[in-house]
Nucleic acid binder design. Structure first.
Length: 682
DNA sequence: GTAACGTCAACAAC
DNA sequence: CGTTGTTGACGTTA
């Protein structure tokens, strides 16, 4: 269906004439390399580019029903049985001013009473990015409600925010923003943990991202968000802010003022369903959503008012514009609970008012999922059922590929063709060394009682890891590094110590599945949060000296070839958490002599395919000896991975291409399909 | 249970 | 009128 067919020159003209309802602020200079790149005139996903091409330009294909208007903001020219609607966003054009595009010297004009040079534009958009005033209702002449607000750090070295080769693909941009956010958040959390405090690393990381305009899809729009795909999962509300999916950091309803013919009206553009009012039934295409307000914790409950988000939803009921829906679910792997899933576009079918349990009026909106979209929450509900009862999974060849030796069964399925399974191999959960472990350098144990804790200077395991424990309290890896030393049998700490993660084995419900063109692959029924341990690469460890030519055709050989920049720079962004003087070493590729062959024996890892845009990376880990030449190869999630998404890692650049003294293997043609595909691997 | 928090739109003030 | 400054609402997170 061509949803933009009713786009006409006149409507774009309207866009030009649209007067913002609120102040305009200079968009440029783009203070950051990154920003300069997101705002270059070409990519359609940019926030707001004053020079965005006219929608008529055929080179310009938005992903969905959105079209950039002259303010660079998308809107949907919605057409349905109720007739066409021309909506031009107005209020969201808040940064459409143009002058200073080429005026790079303006970068440093604002100092905010700080000594530091500042690389952001004036923070006048809200006027409250940095505030040091008294807050609150302050009837307090006695100063009861005075709050000091720390300024959000701005970054001086813009090169910190530049990847060597940034892609212009919206998906890549969104992933880069999320990955930077998470690296920053992880580091802030790690620093907090040293002092045993919690200063909301998520919010602080988000604030740094926002202040530095390191974000994607600024400027609101109706319809889908370039680079955000149905099924994408988020672990923090702020993550949805920085990619432009849902602007309010707290409120559940995101809305904007749009122009319909000659009327200006607020319409809802995105809602986050917190789950409190989820339908009990299984209809994944219907959502009944409650309006906002009326139950503030600090005041009496009252009737909801038809204003703000509620008003916007009301208007959207009649305008029938597409509304993005984010549903929430319980994350079974994370005791803190909630996870957000982008479920695509809906339209409001019905709206009414009803009495809540406490007797006050609540607005209700019934939303119907637009047809023709790929499954979002439906995948989730399906996999949750399989986890509860694996026999519900159809097309199963083998219920447990590991024959019971893994913590959790590994399902083998084929929904594609008639292959009956991979060729024979022996499933093993541990690597086989060519020499006994007892002959290797033993680990040095810590003397921590009970569990190792961050900030404990006496913990030798923390010391050997560079002062920080490598995992968060949830068992997520904090940063990629040359080696991680877990606690071992020689340690006095207990099995529950947080520095024992990979040694406990897999925690995910894996399935080995038949891909369409890449043989067998690996995916998970569970959602996987960035930094989660996935599995080890088990098999037979081969010393480099013992490689023979036979290995040239070993498709199941792991070697530590140099991975792509996405893997290398997974920590990217963490340095933003440091004080300016701080030295944060970014570890890079460190070649290891180790190779592991999973041809004859191995585990789920041998089924992981290569991708140039991987979602998994490898990390050397020690836990049963400390011979650094023979580490365990452990895999961790690079990003949040929705259920049923194939797990892939970067096999690295082939030995030949590398031209180093490495083992030379034939490069294979890459089928990863990523926009950043290098064309070959291995 | 509760403290602390960021963003945006709306409003207020220049 | 155009622009800048201030505030309340929103709900999340640990």
């Amino acid at each position: 269906m061509e949803r933009n067919s009713n786009f006409s020159p006149s409507s774009s003209q309207e866009g030009l004439d649209a007067k913002p309802l609120r102040s305009l602020t200079p968009m440029f200079p783009a203070p950051f390399g990154f920003n300069a790149y997101t705002q270059s005139a070409t990519p359609p996903f940019v926030c707001v580019s004053p020079f965005a091409q006219f929608p008529g330009n055929p080179s310009f294909q938005p992903l969905a029903a959105g079209v950039l208007n002259s303010n660079g903001v998308t809107f949907a020219g919605v057409s349905d049985s109720n007739g066409p609607i021309n909506a031009t966003p107005i209020s969201a054009a808040y940064r459409a001013n143009v002058h200073s595009l080429d005026d790079e010297d303006e970068e440093e004009e604002e100092e905010e009473e700080e000594d530091e040079p500042v690389f952001t534009r004036k923070s006048s958009k809200s006027g409250r990015k940095i505030k040091r005033s008294h807050l609150g209702g302050s009837d307090g002449l006695d100063g009861t409600k005075i709050k000091r607000v720390k300024p959000v750090r701005k970054i001086f070295d813009k090169s910190l925010l530049l990847l060597p080769s940034s892609s212009n693909h919206p998906r890549e941009t969104v992933e880069m923003v999320l990955s930077t956010f998470d690296a920053l958040r992880r580091r802030l959390l790690q620093l907090d943990e040293l002092e045993d405090i919690n200063r909301r690393p998520d919010l602080r990381a988000g604030a740094i991202m926002m202040t530095n305009e390191f974000r994607a899809n600024m400027g609101k729009r109706i319809g889908s968000i370039p680079g955000v795909e149905i099924g994408d999962i988020f672990y923090f509300r702020i993550e949805m802010c920085v990619v432009g999916l849902h602007a309010p950091s707290m409120a559940g309803i995101d809305y904007m003022t749009a122009r319909f013919d000659h009327q200006e009206e607020p319409v809802a553009v995105c809602i986050v369903s917190s789950g409190g009012y989820e339908n009990a039934d299984d209809d994944v295409d219907v959502l009944v959503y409650s309006g906002q307000g009326g139950n503030n914790r600090y005041e009496e409950k009252h009737d909801q008012k038809l204003e703000r988000g509620n008003l916007a939803l009301e208007k959207s009921t009649y305008r029938k514009n597409e509304i993005r829906v984010v549903r929430s679910a319980k994350d079974p792997n994370c005791q803190t609970g909630k996870i957000y899933i982008y479920d695509g576009l809906y339209k409001i079918q019905d709206a009414w008012k009803e009495k809540s349990k406490s007797g006050f009026n609540v607005f209700k909106y019934k939303l119907l999922r637009e047809p023709g979209q790929r499954d979002g929450i439906a995948v989730w509900k399906m996999t949750q059922k399989w986890i509860e009862n694996p026999s519900l999974r159809g097309r199963v060849i083998l219920p447990d590929l590991s024959s019971g030796i893994e913590n959790i069964p590994v399902c083998l399925v084929n929904e594609v063709d008639h292959e009956k399974g991979p060729s024979h191999f022996t499933y093993v959960t541990k690597v086989r060394y060519s020499k006994p472990i007892s002959s290797m350098k033993p680990s040095q144990g810590c003397r921590c009682l009970s569990v190792c804790l961050p900030g404990d200077r006496n913990c030798s395991c923390a010391q050997v890891n560079g002062g920080d424990l490598p995992y968060s309290s949830l068992g997520l890896i904090a940063s990629r590094r040359n080696m991680i030393y877990e606690c071992s049998d020689s340690c006095q700490c207990s099995y529950n110590c947080r520095n024992r993660v990979t040694q406990k084995g897999i925690r995910l419900h894996f399935e080995v599945f038949r891909t369409r063109n890449r043989g067998w692959g690996l995916r998970s029924w569970d959602p996987i949060r960035a930094g989660s341990f996935i599995c080890e690469y088990t098999g037979e460890v081969i010393d480099e000296s013992k490689v023979d030519l036979d290995d040239d055709d070993d498709d199941y050989l792991f070697q530590t070839a140099c991975p792509g920049e996405k893997t290398l720079r997974w920590n990217y962004g963490a340095e933003l958490a440091e004080e300016p003087s701080g030295t944060f070493s970014t570890d890079t590729y460190n070649p290891l002599p180790i190779m592991v062959s999973a041809r004859n024996m191995g585990n789920v890892a041998r089924f992981m395919n290569h991708s140039c845009s991987p979602n998994v990376f490898w990390q050397p880990v020690q836990h049963d000896h400390s011979d650094d030449g023979h580490p365990h190869i452990m895999f961790f999630a690079m990003k949040h991975i929705p259920p049923m998404t194939e797990l892939t890692y970067d096999y690295g650049v082939s030995g030949k291409e590398r031209g180093s003294g490495g083992v030379s293997r034939r490069a294979k043609r890459c089928l990863c399909g990523s926009p950043a595909c290098r064309g070959s691997f291995g």
